[in-house]
């Protein structure tokens, strides 16, 4: 039985836009799944349906075999923006993620997580006093304080500079190794997907569908500049290329060194 099962999920918005069609994805306990695709693939829609923030037009989502609707205690999320509550201190923001815990438990975990995400001593500050990367660290701590079975990530690092992003990748993997949640992460960054994920689901646009699922069989810690890493990246890029069909074979051929040319 899968930890998380998405079956034949579809979403058509009130204005008639079909964002998702017949999407089926399964994730095992403790697996990291990256959902990769360009804009218009319905990645974010898919995540919002899982988080219970929107209602599916068809299909089902199950956690450990039980169908869910709406938000679920075992599912937590980190959004594209940190979305901290500006009127709560950093520590209070982290504690906000643990509504069901006792006060002492909540305090202990908050203290532990503050240190763990490298913000020890910042607990009394306001969110406005933190940098973007620090705010996203707080958001990750908030999402994990309740020890969720499933963690959803919606392009959480896309607004950060490459250095901050790399350090947050390490942080996320470290926390994942401790707590072992199943992670579903939406991203448009191939490098990020290959670095983090066990499997990568490549989506195809208009309407959003699953194009191909690729396993990343690389041992951790992964070396971003190793040739095998590059090989996997190429496979993913080819899959994206194919997913775009006739419309968009532009600029996706990886240049030497595995980086896309700047144009």
């Amino acid at each position: 039985m899968s930890k998380l099962a998405i079956e034949h999920l579809g979403k058509t918005y009130a204005d008639g836009t079909e964002a998702l069609r017949d999407v089926s994805v399964r994730a095992d306990d403790g697996e990291i799944l990256a959902i990769l695709g360009g804009s218009g693939c319905g990645k974010t829609t898919l995540l919002r349906l899982m988080a219970g923030l929107d209602e599916a037009s068809g299909g089902a989502i199950s956690v450990e075999g039980a169908r869910i609707s709406g938000t679920h205690a075992a599912i937590s999320a980190v959004f594209q923006e940190p979305r901290l509550l500006p009127w709560l201190s950093v520590a209070q923001n982290i504690a906000f993620g643990a509504q069901r815990l006792s006060a002492t438990e909540r305090r202990d975990r908050t203290e532990g997580l503050l240190d763990r995400v490298g913000l020890g001593g910042y607990g009394g500050r306001w969110p406005k006093d933190l940098s973007g990367g620090q705010q996203q660290r707080v958001a990750i701590a908030r999402a994990l304080i309740g020890h969720p079975g499933i963690l959803l990530l919606d392009e959480p690092f896309s607004a950060l500079d490459p250095f901050t992003r790399a350090s947050l990748h390490e942080l996320l993997l470290g926390l994942w190794q401790e707590l072992r949640p199943t992670i579903l992460m939406v991203t448009h960054d191939v490098d990020e997907a290959v670095f983090l994920a066990d499997r990568i689901v490549v989506m195809r646009p208009k309407p959003g569908r699953v194009h191909e699922t690729i396993s990343v069989n690389l041992p951790r810690p992964r070396d971003r500049i190793s040739p095998v890493f590059d090989t996997v990246k190429r496979r993913i890029m080819h899959a994206i290329d194919r997913s775009l069909g006739e419309q968009g074979r532009v600029g996706l051929r990886p240049a030497a060194g595995g980086h896309s040319p700047w144009w």
Binding site: G52, L53, T71, I75, E81, R83, L85, F96, R100
Partner: peptide
């Protein structure tokens, strides 16, 4: 709306 969604996700 985004902050309200945070409340929903965390079970308020």
């Amino acid at each position: 709306r985004k902050l309200v969604e945070v409340g929903r996700v965390f079970g308020l």
